[in-house]
Nucleic acid binder design. Structure first.
Length: 499
RNA sequence: GCCCCCAUCGUCUAGAGGCCUAGGACACAUCCCUUUCACGGAUGCGACACGGGUUCGAAUCCCGUUGGGGGUACCA
């Protein structure tokens, strides 16, 4: 059997992480079985659907690498098909027109509620006589179309995630509305549960993979498959992504749209990896938990999908994103960070070697690309001196250290940097050697030298590893210049301190 | 209320009746590396919701309780 699955988002909001995770499972399953992954936009709710959300959903899926094989299909363009199918059900007597007014349905539910009964339609218009129908029409009532659901039906399926799930017809809420109200003998806007089934049949979907929140739709849909005379597909209901409180993650929980994660500096690979891990676990021994979609697809199966909901955890996402970042080659990382720095307003020199050197240095302590501007500031902007740095520079012995290195680097700047493979390594060794030499020459502690250089060059007490930092700064002749500047600050301070 | 689903460290999870003194990852703590913050390495802390069965033996199977979640539309 060929596997055909689909993701069917509704364009009533931006691509949500829950929808994206369902897309991940669908895509993984399709790839594992060399099947087809279909994208269908469920825009039957004309009121709430917006083209910009469709755009956002398409972009988000592409960004995540969840490429679909067919589509996007739009339900709004397929109304004729749905109406035909509804007409057929009407003709077969499996569906009928119901003329209840909203207030009447409301009143009915009030009574049920008062009696501690489940709210349900009591099928009161199921067997209307021609006279009754004519009377309702004469009143100007607009009918909906309801699909008959027998109370004594038992509906069961074997869910790929949950095993056997069963339902009783009477718990389905009575005959269900499949088309909204409309004038006379027209067929109104068809509704979700119906169009899903028509489309899944038409698109020959073999496996319906969706969130657990759709479990209660499944028995209704199974009845519809039967009515339409088609075999029922396999179902897999995946656990939901939960918020900190353990409830279904919703827009109200803050950051939930894929575009937001992207803007926060998370990579598509890491996000896809994390979403997969929220419910699926890689087989032990074959795979670690840091993986690409391709790797996951190789081993994906519903046997390894958990049944319980999974709370979303920022700590783990951050860690995972850092891991993915650290696995990038310097050139790849550089490609990612360059636009971030440019967007931050930095004038990034056109020097690929230097840029890659910088990326290697910063990449090891980077979790998200959005952290890169703050982390790289010292390389693009003249330092401003923190109070702590100023205080440090006041100390005795500091001036002589700065002057010594200033002179040293002034000399070095006269030479060109050798363009060689291990340029940075060689430069770092050279700086390291010079530092050690000066430590013994000046008779000071290493800690003092290192601290002094850091404060004088960057104006702060913490930052990336110092020696590589110096190497990078030196490559653009920034070291001697900055030391001169630091010296001036010391001079001005001692001047005012004496008076 | 009614129906359905679920239940292992704080979090994500491994676990298919004996390989379990319950494994891994994140987080947390301590130490190492280190001028610093990170990264990295090591160690530690830490869970089978509860009660009954079944069995020689239960985290695993059954029943119940409790707790959590989802659904209950002329939304999707």
């Amino acid at each position: 059997m060929t596997v055909r699955v689909r993701i069917a988002p509704s364009p009533t909001g931006n691509l949500h992480i829950g929808t994206a995770r369902t897309a991940v499972f669908n895509c993984l399953f399709a790839r594992h079985h060399q099947g087809q992954f279909i994208l269908r936009i469920e825009d039957t709710d004309l009121e709430r659907s917006r083209p910009e959300f469709t755009e956002n959903i398409l972009e988000g899926l592409k960004w995540l690498g969840l490429n679909w094989d067919e589509g996007p299909f739009f339900q709004s363009e397929r109304m004729e098909l749905y109406r035909q199918k509804i007409q057929a059900l009407l003709v077969q007597g499996l569906a009928y027109r119901a003329y209840d007014a909203p207030e009447e349905l409301e009143a009915m539910r009030e009574v049920q509620k008062a009696n501690h009964e489940a709210p349900r339609y009591d099928n009161r218009h199921r067997d209307l006589t021609a006279e009754q129908e004519a009377a309702f029409k004469a009143e100007g009532r607009k009918p909906v179309i309801r699909f008959k659901i027998e109370d004594d039906r038992e509906i069961a399926w074997t869910d790929l995630v949950r095993g056997k799930v069963s339902w009783k017809g009477r718990d389905l809420g009575g005959d269900m509305v499949i088309a909204r109200a409309s004038e006379g003998s027209d067929i109104g806007q068809p509704l979700y549960n119906f169009v899903v089934v028509v489309d899944d049949i038409d698109m020959k979907i073999s496996h319906v993979i969706r969130g657990e929140d759709h479990i209660s739709n499944t028995p209704k849909q199974i009845l519809l498959y039967e009515a339409l005379g088609t075999a029922v597909p396999e179902f897999a209901h995946t656990p939901l992504i939960l918020n900190q409180a353990g409830a279904k993650l919703s827009k109200r929980d803050g950051v939930t749209s894929i575009a937001d994660f992207q803007a926060m500096g998370y990579s598509a690979e890491a996000l896809a990896n994390y979403m997969t891990l929220l419910g699926w676990s890689p087989p032990e021994g074959v795979m670690e938990e840091i993986f690409s979609l391709d790797q996951a697809a190789q081993h994906f199966s519903f046997d390894r999908v958990n049944k319980a909901g999974a709370k979303f955890d920022w700590d783990k996402l951050n860690w995972l994103n850092g891991q993915h970042l650290r696995r990038l080659a310097p050139s790849e990382l550089s490609q990612q960070l360059l636009p971030v720095w440019q967007a931050a307003g930095y004038e990034v020199p056109d020097d690929a070697v230097w840029l890659e050197g910088l990326c290697v240095l910063l990449g090891q302590s980077l979790n998200r690309t959005t952290e890169a501007p703050a982390m790289a500031q010292t390389f693009f902007v003249e330092p401003t001196f923190e109070q702590e740095a100023v205080d440090h520079l006041k100390q005795p012995n500091v001036g002589i250290i700065i002057q010594t290195f200033e002179k040293l680097f002034r000399e070095w700047e006269k030479e060109d940097l050798p363009m060689q493979e291990d340029l940075w390594k060689k430069l770092e060794e050279k700086i390291q050697a010079a530092i050690h030499e000066q430590i013994s020459a000046l008779g000071v502690k290493k800690g003092l030298v290192m601290k002094t250089l850091r404060m004088a060059l960057t104006g702060t007490k913490s930052g990336p590893e110092l020696v590589p930092t110096i190497a990078l700064l030196h490559a653009h002749k920034e070291v001697a210049k900055r030391l001169t500047q630091a010296n001036k600050i010391i001079a001005s301070m001692s001047g005012s301190a004496d008076t």
